[in-house]
Design a binder for these strands. Sequence first.
DNA 1: AAAACAGATTATAATAGTTCTAGACTATTG
DNA 2: CAATAGTCTAGAACTATTATAATCTGTTTT
Lengths: 142, 142
Amino acid sequence: MTRPFANALELLRAARLRPTRQRLALARLLFEKGDRHVAAEELHGEALAAQVPVSLATVYNTLHQFVGAGLLREVVINPGRSYFDTNVSDHHHFFYEDSGKLRDIPGDSIAVTNVPPPPDGGSIRRVDVVVRVEKAASKARS
Amino acid sequence: MTRPFANALELLRAARLRPTRQRLALARLLFEKGDRHVAAEELHGEALAAQVPVSLATVYNTLHQFVGAGLLREVVINPGRSYFDTNVSDHHHFFYEDSGKLRDIPGDSIAVTNVPPPPDGGSIRRVDVVVRVEKAASKARS
DNA sequence: AAAACAGATTATAATAGTTCTAGACTATTG
DNA sequence: CAATAGTCTAGAACTATTATAATCTGTTTT
């Protein structure tokens, strides 16, 4: 956290992606603010606001390259919009239906058990849990 | 299952939707073949193939009305395409990444435990589990 | 360090899925 | 059977995303 530029550079090197101006800037926007869930247009807006000249097409390209390199995870919850999650460790999500926001649930706080083997063959690559939350008095201890 | 038309009619009545030609036909296509996962365009194609004149706009309207009435459930897994699930009981899904197909997992065969309360308030409306399956020798007992 | 090359970036066009619109149609009601 | 409230339709519009083809930039070679 003391040498952010170096971190982004290492990240790209490890992913075997050329450290271009745009990729470095996007990497910094993505990974220097802790865990985030961003949509492509959102990130594009942030980049422009940060005086980084980058096209939307490049933002998409870069996000997909990062996903391919295991630096990001794509989260699909809403039809018509993908979110990219900077947390690639095993975890799940709360989805707030009214605001459209996501929030991580640590992987070890939820347990999914008794998943049967896929009936049509193949192997399990990942188990995604989405907890849909609706606005309502939380009504905790009933 | 002996009087399909009557079933579709009852369904629409219960949902307080006028039993129009189009809605009846779509209801029959959806609910007379057991549990299914259909996309809008798919259903539209089936309707046309079955000589039911219906526009794509009406298919979308109807699907959403059915979701609103609790007859269908919308499942979002792929960016850019929604599936509508005729099984509205508590259950989860296998998603076959290569074919894009969905398959139900009975709700009682999976257990999700220790879900923490939503940190930002609100109440849990539903917990969706998607088991992503990739094509590969299942390689069971390792 | 210049030249050459591979790869990246860009603006723009194209695409896919979905939603909107305004007018025509139809099931219900009196 | 006329009125009306709700439904259907073709087509346009919209949103997010992907493709294209030309230009540019980082790296490698000389």
